[in-house]
Structures are given as C-alpha cells and as structure tokens.
Nucleic acid binder design. Structure first.
Lengths: 185, 185
DNA sequence: CTTACCATGTAAGCTGTTACATGATTGT
DNA sequence: ACAATCATGTAACAGCTTACATGGTAAG
C-alpha cells in the first residue's frame, strides 16, 4: 500500500474549512502547492474514496440558479486519521527530484554555448518564483514580527518561509555555479 | 505522453560507460540519487524499452562461472536523443514535494509536545545526509580548488555542491523555525 | 455574444512502488 | 554452512498526468 499523501493533504485542508473539489484544486495553486499538489482529476477521485471510507461527508451548495458545488466536511474519523498521521515522524526522505540538476550531471555533453542559456532560464524561473513568494509573505505578514504571528497562521508562515529559503538557496547556488563555469572557460 | 525522465537519465549514465541494470540501480544510490532515482524493477523494464527503441544495445558478460550480466551501450541514436534532451531548457518547475513541510502546514493540529520530536527527527536525518554528502565531497575533491576540477568531474561537482547547499539551507531553516516555535511557547 | 472562470467528472496511459521469485558468487 | 551481495526478472497495484467531455455563471 502507498503512503496516501494526497488523502492526508485533503483531510488537512478540510480541517481548516469545508471545501469543494474545485476549492481544493485551488489550494494546491497557493502556498501549499510549493510542497504538494494534485490535478483536479486526481482530487475528485480521492474525494470519492475518502467519502466511501467515511473520513469526510458531503453536502450540496447551489451557486446562482443551479450550479452545484459538492462541499466536503471532515468527519470525526477523518479528524482522527489526520491527527494520527500528523504525529508520526517521517522515517525516510524521498528523493527530491530535480530534472535541471539531473541534466547538469551530464554537463560535459552540453554544448558550451548552451550552458549559459540553461542556467539563465532556470535563474529567471526561480527568481520569478521568489518574487512571488516574497509578495505573498508581504501580503500575509508584512512587517509583523514572527513572534506575533497568530497560531492559526503559523503553518502558513512556516511553509512560506521554507519556500522562500529554498528558492533563495537555489538562486545563490545557480549564481555561484554559473560564475565558476564562466571562469573555467 | 510523459516526459520520460528515467529514459534520459539512463541514457546519460550509459554515456559515461557501459553498464548493467544492476550497475544503474547502484548509480541511483550515489550522488545522482539525490536528484533522480528508480528501483531495479522499473529500470529493467525501461532498459527493455530503450533496447526496442534502438537507443541502446546489449551484450552479455560472464562473471565467474555462469553469472550473466547484461551490459548496455549507447547507440548513436541514443547519443543523439540524449544530446537533444540536454539542450532543451525546462519550461516549468515541478512541485518539489516534501511531506514534512506539508505536515507543518497543519501544525496547529499537532500536539505541542510532539512538535519538537518531529523537528529533531527531521534535523537528525538531514544532518546525517549532510555529513555523508560532505564526506563524498572530501573524498572526490578534497582541498582541490573548484577551478581545477577536471571537465569530466564537473557534473559530479555541481550535483554534490547543490545537494550540500540544499541540505545546509534546510537545516538552517529547521533550526530557525524550531527556535521561533520554542520562543512562542 | 463572447471570454474567462466556476464546477465536476471519466478514460487512457504512463510512472513508480512493493512484493514475489529465482539463482550465482564471495567472504567468513 | 551462512550471510551478504550480485544479478535479473514479473505481477499487482497505487499514483499521477493528459486528454476528453459537459455544462453554469459573471463581466464587459
């Protein structure tokens, strides 16, 4: 049996508030999407499975005239399952896959005049992401001192600062490595 | 159609030297395993596929009396496919999934007295990994100046320094975050 | 009216893990 | 003898992506 991460991610999201499959799909485009995500096709299937496992319950909301939104709530079984999952430490770390770095492992096969383009492409994507993440930070936490952050925002704070730290470190390494490669020419 | 990363990872590995499925499985336990990996069951299947696509060729080597090793070589088609793949920049970045951080997003559901254990567990795993990576660096590059690294080791150097940078950044963030959480108590 | 977004679902196919299965070789 | 490692493979299942498919709502 797999580790059912998506299952628990959905239970976690529903612990914050009732949501539809569409809402959950949207959540994975926000901060938490930096660390887990899924497509709507997978989410709708998982919701059906969770419903049949009695970990969530369903009710219908109508938007406008007749547009149905299937809303889901955590059941007490679902809450227990979530709590249980959250307390168990991860015993191993999965390979954190990165195709760009995989390609660099074979850098001696990349034409010299293409290397800079690959690096700057990656630099641009990562910089844009970092800018976006810093805007999010500014939006939610502004000049607020970390010690003053409300308990119900702590998770979001941790995820955002981790994502920012990850991108900053990535960009620093990119700059250093490109500089090294230029000097070697 | 998928992106066939494993396909290209195998072509890349075979560009360095002829290998068996077993050898390739072993490679994914070394440095490159920090950024891509696969189990032997998947590798043997992929090798058959690559063989049928004429991107690699096969010959048999005997170890000892009768233990067969099926060795694979890149064909010129395979080399072309690899070169082509290496030159194309990644247009998007996949979600870099991290279950530990996903759990932290739901930190307000984690009992206070379990949080430190989760952090220190992660700290220990990451520290062990960093120590291992630094040993690898020491082993391969020692006190050597980065500018003096041979071209055929540049890929390995980049992968190792990236992995070290990633773990260092992760550990720093863990320490800072745990400190913050302790102060909030 | 038309575009963007809201909303849900299924089908096909590829990717990846776990478990099952077998046998050879090397070192103690 | 025994264990660890070398070496290859298949089967079943779980996870995930892409494409197909449909219809409602809100704003300009």
């Amino acid at each position: 049996m797999g580790k059912r991460i998506l299952k628990h991610a959905i239970l976690g999201l529903l612990s914050k508030k009732d949501m539809s499959g569409y809402d959950i799909t949207g959540e994975f485009k926000e901060e938490i999407g930096q660390f887990w995500s899924a497509k709507h096709s997978q989410i709708y299937i998982e919701l059906k499975k969770l419903l049949s496992e009695n970990l969530i319950s369903q009710y219908i909301e109508i938007s406008g005239e007749k547009l149905e939104r299937k809303m889901y709530s955590l059941t007490s079984d679902g809450k227990n399952e979530l709590d249980q999952w959250l307390t168990v430490p991860e015993d191993t770390i999965e390979t954190e896959k990165d195709v760009f770095i995989l390609k660099l492992y074979f850098i001696n096969h990349i034409p010299k005049d293409r290397i800079e383009a690959l690096f700057s492409n990656q630099y641009n994507i990562r910089s844009a992401k970092l800018t976006y993440l810093r805007e999010q930070y500014q939006h939610f936490f502004g000049e607020q001192h970390p010690l003053e952050i409300a308990s119900d925002q702590l998770g979001q704070y941790l995820v955002l600062t981790k994502a920012i730290s990850r991108e900053k470190s990535y960009i620093d390494w990119l700059s250093q490595s490109l500089e090294l490669i230029r000097k070697r020419k």
